[in-house]
Design a protein around this nucleic acid. Structure first.
Lengths: 339, 339
DNA sequence: CTGTTAGCGCATTCAT
DNA sequence: ATGAATGCGCTAACAG
């Protein structure tokens, strides 16, 4: 069964039918478990199909069915650390069924997004997952797109769209509440770039938790950049302004890593003197931290799974709109444990 | 143009043809730039197509063409840091044309790999890129797979397959040569897990370069794990055994990071006293290093691009086999600069 | 230049 | 229980 160039030509249903001595229609029914086929015939057909390792051409099937069993995942942050777990979660949720994922990286470029969108629609994807690079709301693809879409990480500005986003306010609350539960009362906050919604939301959550507990924060939130260098600088500024600090909430694990390093170099003991907590629970950063870093995990993989599940529902014709938030969780390690 | 459920039904070529008052065939020729179509007709058809935002159904096209313009990317290490840049490179190289990528993560599980393989073949991908999780050779998919495949990162054991792998021997050479060029002669080597081909290959390269220069290595290669903790422990052992060291080759950026931290804490100046070089040029690790870390970049993105390019050639019917290695490059930063 | 015909691989009536 | 016929959206070969 080879073509001129030596590559085997895909086995078609007709090949199977011919060898089994039945019509294509019968073969189809036999393989798809339709009733009204003689058991013997069915067995025979299935055997032949196996022997030829017949793989039904899902394109031909899709052309009539109107469903391709494929979805497009349009990301803007493939190298970043957010979209990857989301992608894995989605791939996981779909993989259980029989949906395949087209991956496209638009790299924050609207033109490229349009290009990929056309390609995906041409391939007749059943739906789309759009992953943003920040938690700031992004423009909707609009209602003229002929397939349903779910927005992950960055919500759509249009509330009629379905979005799945991390709950940064709760994340901030959880971080602060964890520190409060340890008895800490002199809590400072070193965060990242103030222009990010994520930074603002986490700060809001921290402030809420402190207010609920009747605890004054130590100084204002110190915004900077999402880097270790800023973590070192930021915590130095905090301690220089007011040395009586017993805990630091850090805007990200990278910042926390910097904070840990600076504290150690100042001779401040963690967690005995100062407890430290980060956000994202990002393994590469966590792994090398001394001591091991407590961090708030945003559950990105769950986010990907939820996005996939909601998209499946939309594809199946169900109505579903609005922003869904994913609950974060605190992963406790040495930097706050053993108070 | 909506179905009962409110979703717009995809516009077909027939819709366009009807509105334009021509036959489907003519519309097809007009839109595909075939000759023998009256300019006026072509314009009219194109206008209508635009107005209806007609997107040709590439499935229907593929069914006759025998080519789908899709490839499968089967990875075993989606969360790792190797497959991501490879994937980006491939996506980049394909994206320029009009090939879309199906992404599947088998997570090192052969069963899952088979499952995904069936799904991909059912979708009639034109080819496959198989990405391994280590540089150790992996089993071939075999010749019964009806489409060409290119193996990336982990080569296929079968030399008749096309593979693209990092050149770890050269990487080791480059690292050592860089240090030698700086005048360093007392060079130690702290590496990762000795069971990895990557660790062995890099060690081979380092040894070759030293031998070529007539320089004795300081002590044996110290193997451990690919972690910062081992970097700290390993360099401590090195210095305790022989303090007269002026450079350390580190098996990975993570190890290098640990080495840098331990050196700083011992009061050893980098690079004045000891120069340090890592492998992979992995941004998250590099970003926080003090001083900034010189590292050998394995050019994974290039690897992805090459894999994509070779696969395209195979799909086009060209013959191409054998293992291709990707040249690494040294990215010089403060940990070795300003000698 | 344009339209008619045929066929890709499969699922689905509708006859037999 | 089985098979012949039809159609999905599109392209290619041929006829007008």
């Amino acid at each position: 069964m080879t073509t001129t160039d030596g590559r085997p030509r895909p086995v078609t249903l007709r090949d199977v039918a011919q060898l089994a001595g039945v019509s294509v229609a019968t073969a189809s029914k036999a393989l798809n478990g339709k009733a009204e086929v003689h058991p013997d015939t069915r067995r025979r057909v299935q055997e032949i199909a196996d022997r030829l390792s017949f793989t039904p051409n899902s394109l031909a099937r899709a052309i009539t069915a109107g469903q391709t069993g494929t979805v497009g995942l349009l990301t803007h942050d493939l190298e970043g650390r957010f979209s990857l777990p989301i992608l894995m979660g989605a791939e996981d949720a779909f993989g259980a069924g029989s949906t395949s994922v087209f991956l496209c990286d638009a790299r924050g470029d609207a033109i490229r997004e349009q290009h990929h969108l056309r390609a995906l629609l041409g391939r007749r994807v059943d739906g789309l997952i759009v992953v943003g690079s920040t938690t700031d709301p992004r423009p909707s693809l609009g209602t003229d797109v002929p397939v349903p879409a779910v927005y992950a990480y960055a919500p759509s500005v249009d509330p009629r769209d379905a979005s799945v986003v991390p709950d940064n306010v709760t994340a901030g609350r959880l971080a602060a509440e964890h520190l409060l539960a340890l008895g800490r009362r002199r809590i400072a906050h070193v965060s990242g770039d103030a222009t990010y919604a994520a930074a603002q939301d986490r700060a809001t959550g921290v402030a809420q938790a402190l207010a609920d507990a009747g605890v004054e924060p130590v100084g204002p939130v110190r915004y900077g950049s999402w880097s270790e260098a800023w973590g070192r600088a930021g915590v130095t500024a905090v301690l220089d302004a007011d040395p009586a600090v017993d805990a630091v909430v850090c805007g990200s694990d990278q910042i926390a890593r910097g904070v840990l390093d600076a504290l150690r170099e100042r001779g401040v003991r963690v967690p005995a003197d100062v407890a430290v907590i980060g956000f994202d629970n990002w393994q590469p950063m966590i792994a090398g931290s001394r001591p091991a870093l407590t961090s708030v995990d945003m559950n990105f993989e769950t986010m990907g799974r939820r996005a996939a599940t909601r998209l499946s529902a939309l594809v199946a014709g169900q109505q579903d709109a609005g922003v869904e938030t994913i609950e974060p969780r605190v992963v406790v390690r040495a930097s706050t444990a053993g108070d």
